[in-house]
Design a protein around this nucleic acid. Sequence first.
DNA 1: ATGACTAACTTGCATACCACAAGTCAGTCT
DNA 2: AGACTGACTTGTGGTATGCAAGTTAGTCAT
Lengths: 115, 115
Amino acid sequence: MNDTITFKRSCCPITNSLDILGDKWTLVVIRDLALGKKRYQEFMASSERIASNILADRLKQLEASGLVTRRAYQQKPVRYEYVLTEKGEGLKPVLRALVVWGKKHFPSTKVIPTI
Amino acid sequence: MNDTITFKRSCCPITNSLDILGDKWTLVVIRDLALGKKRYQEFMASSERIASNILADRLKQLEASGLVTRRAYQQKPVRYEYVLTEKGEGLKPVLRALVVWGKKHFPSTKVIPTI
DNA sequence: ATGACTAACTTGCATACCACAAGTCAGTCT
DNA sequence: AGACTGACTTGTGGTATGCAAGTTAGTCAT
């Protein structure tokens, strides 16, 4: 049997994580999810002003990667909300490490409600 | 006096960290640096096969951001080596968090020598 | 019942970033 | 002289990002 898995770039766990997380917006969206935001307009309202096409794309990718689940919270009209899966919640330590580093090296950044 | 600093996107520490780290290659290079690699060819030799122009660009950006120092380790011909600054070393917890998450969710990824 | 409004997107287009191959340049080695 | 090495740079094409505007289904006020 063939036991080998084909990785995008290498078999390094960091590299494989970055194949999902390695861009300027994905972890910002995950931060918002970790803070309890669920709806499209809530993500749009964040101070980084993400473009709507980028947000839609990231939410799709996050769902495809199993970090987020999307479900309709009402019909008529259909409205969706997004929630972190356990896999997505598992990124909180990464976010926390980034906060620690960021606060140290960009001193005037603001604390955000605990993630 | 004006005490406000203009941030690229927002005053969130995560966002500001990602303005430096948020792409597919930067943290891979930092991983190599954290593993003790110093020279251009050592980075080039990593299993991810980074393109040489991207590597040159990332090393420049890392130096500009104060995460790395570059110094000639010999003259005739001049050869350079790159070493993490304390600010760069400070990213190790982020790398470790990524390793933990990556190993859990990409089970067949290989352990790398402790970072 | 018409017009304004809202949430969640999608589309178009210009710019910026990335990947791959090839080329450059100074110096060394044989 | 010719091959080789390390550290890059350049060219070209493809992918990603940013901004503005448009779409769709349904609600609410008059």
